[in-house]
């Protein structure tokens, strides 16, 4: 799997101002007199902005779930607080670990793109490790659900289980989206068409999934 990249991928253009749209362009640079000043554009490429916008939206969704949980847990006497399946703690370690491995891959590619190194040092291996850990996490979540179901603890058993399934399934679906993103990064990397902004956006999304998971774990674990 180890690949040494010998030629620079076509990706550095991200940092340069491009003509017209695509990566921003010049802003506010044309004074009333009409004279043009060419100044390097500092605005981020769309993927960098877009990922923050998407994360804001995902945050709102989980905030809505959270407020529903708080209202529901606080308002009714029928809440039976659940014991989390122990495998979830293992999954937590896996998803946090995957953030580290992705960060290693990202830094290696970034250093290479920034011209610090002549070739990226085995970044692909770390990307594959990240992908495997991600798959392992999803598999671990599926095991957790199966374990609960085998104990007869289903969606409608108690409202605490309803929330558990809703939150973990919603999170797992978002993680699966991140896995798709990783596959895409790997394929673009192999085609030498990976952009720095794509890599950064995917890794931000992936880290966010890790943070979101820790948040959900605490939310489900503690009794308000």
């Amino acid at each position: 799997m180890a690949t040494v990249v010998h030629e620079p991928p076509k990706m550095d253009v991200d940092r340069l101002p491009s003509q017209g749209s695509g990566n921003g362009g010049w802003r506010n640079l044309v004074p009333a007199s009409g004279g043009l000043r060419k100044v390097q554009d500092a605005s981020p490429p769309p993927a960098s902005t877009g990922i923050w916008v998407a994360l804001a939206s995902i945050t709102m969704t989980f905030a809505a779930f959270t407020s529903a949980l708080v209202v529901r847990q606080g308002g009714a006497p029928d809440w039976q607080h659940m014991t989390l399946p122990p495998i979830l703690y293992l999954n937590t370690v896996v998803i946090i670990g995957s953030s580290f491995t992705l960060e290693i891959a990202r830094r290696r590619i970034a250093a290479f793109m920034g011209g610090l190194h002549e070739h990226a040092d085995k970044p692909l291996r770390w990307l594959y490790i990240t992908l495997s850990l991600g798959l392992l996490f999803v598999a671990g979540q599926i095991l957790a659900w199966r374990e609960l179901v085998s104990q007869g603890l289903r969606f409608a058993t108690n409202i605490s289980y309803s929330f558990f399934y809703v939150l973990t399934i919603a999170h797992a679906l978002h993680v699966s989206g991140g896995l798709g993103g990783l596959v895409r990064v790997i394929s673009k990397f192999n085609n030498r068409t990976l952009k720095r902004s794509t890599l950064d956006a995917t890794s931000r999304y992936w880290h966010f999934m890790g943070v979101l998971w820790v948040y959900l774990l605490v939310l489900l674990w503690m009794k308000l």
């Binding site: 802003r27 506010n28 981020p44």
Partner: peptide, 14 residues
């Protein structure tokens, strides 16, 4: 829409 407005403006479009 948001990303277009923030990142895709042409030269001179503040």
């Amino acid at each position: 829409f948001i990303t277009t407005t923030l990142d895709m403006r042409c030269k001179g479009m503040s």
